[in-house]
């Protein structure tokens, strides 16, 4: 309960959360602000930004509204970020908990698998997966999850190794609690705060990976994405640089917001323990 007041005291956290909330609001409200297909051609092509009040960010080569594309693109970025976070932390925390708590052979096997995944460059894995499964948002989320879960897994395992020696874990065994419940009910919740400090890196990485895949033409073709917009703009980079710069700025702002909020959350969390 004291976490929130503490959060507000850190200016980074406030700015970060404000950015994220704004972008989330835009993403959620996109279908209402810009109903219809954002890919629809609405005006003449290549209107410069800040000239036409109806199209504040101008239009692209085909005359599509950049503002509408940007708003709808936020949905893809946030979805990928959120999905990858849930996927990578869920998978990593689960495997890390099992490995750390069970120990022995299970630990050995799970850790070797983790290492194997770690040696494959993440982006290469994503490329391979998306080309194999076909471009879709789900494939991107899966790809990012598979390349990002090793960090949370190792961190969770390290936490679990130290927590499982605590008296309260012994106490749970003494009252006859089932080992799985001890692992996931007693140990994991106490390991999670530290693991969640990886959230920012994972979310930011996921958003950037999605953008990079879209930029390479491997994004979901039925969705507007910021990476796709940058790629589109590349052809007219000299004459209409705003086509690339505007979604690029959106991308940078979002990643910045994620980092700032993540930093603030980690700080608020670490200050919580051991108060009277």
């Amino acid at each position: 309960m004291t976490r929130f007041p503490r959060l507000w005291r850190s200016p980074e956290a406030v700015i970060g959360l404000a950015i994220l909330l704004t972008i989330a609001a835009i993403a959620l409200l996109a279908p209402f602000i810009y109903p219809g297909d954002p890919h629809a051609i609405v005006a003449r092509p290549l209107i410069a930004p800040l000239v036409d009040p109806a199209h504040p960010f101008g239009t692209d080569r085909l005359g599509r509204d950049l503002a509408a594309e940007l708003a709808h693109g936020a949905r893809a970025s946030l979805l990928v970020g959120l999905g990858a976070m849930v996927g990578a932390i869920g998978l990593g925390a689960g495997i890390g908990t099992l490995a750390g708590f069970a120990g022995g052979v299970i630990d050995e096997v799970l850790m070797r698998i983790t290492e194997a995944f770690q040696t494959v460059p993440g982006f290469l894995l994503s490329l391979a997966l998306v080309s194999a499964m076909g471009p879709s948002l789900g494939a991107v989320v899966l790809a990012v999850t598979l390349s990002a879960w090793t960090g949370p897994a190792r961190l969770t395992r390290a936490q679990v190794l130290s927590i499982r020696e605590r008296d309260y874990v012994a106490a749970a065994r003494v009252i006859g609690m089932h080992p799985l419940r001890i692992a996931f009910g007693e140990v994991l919740p106490n390991a999670l705060p530290v693991v969640l400090s990886l959230t920012a890196v994972i979310v930011a990485g996921a958003i950037l990976t999605e953008a990079a895949l879209s930029f390479l033409g491997l994004g979901d073709p039925n969705r507007v994405t910021w990476g796709g917009m940058i790629a589109e703009g590349r052809a007219v980079l000299r004459s209409a640089p705003h086509l690339s710069i505007v979604p690029g700025l959106a991308l940078v702002t979002t990643v910045l917001g994620v980092y700032l909020a993540g930093e603030g959350l980690t700080e608020a969390n670490s200050g919580r323990k051991g108060q009277p």
Binding site: Y168, A170, A172, N190
Partner: peptide
């Protein structure tokens, strides 16, 4: 069992 350090013996 009752442990020595009662704080350490409970899930925080």
């Amino acid at each position: 069992m009752v442990f020595q350090d009662p704080l350490a013996a409970f899930n925080p």
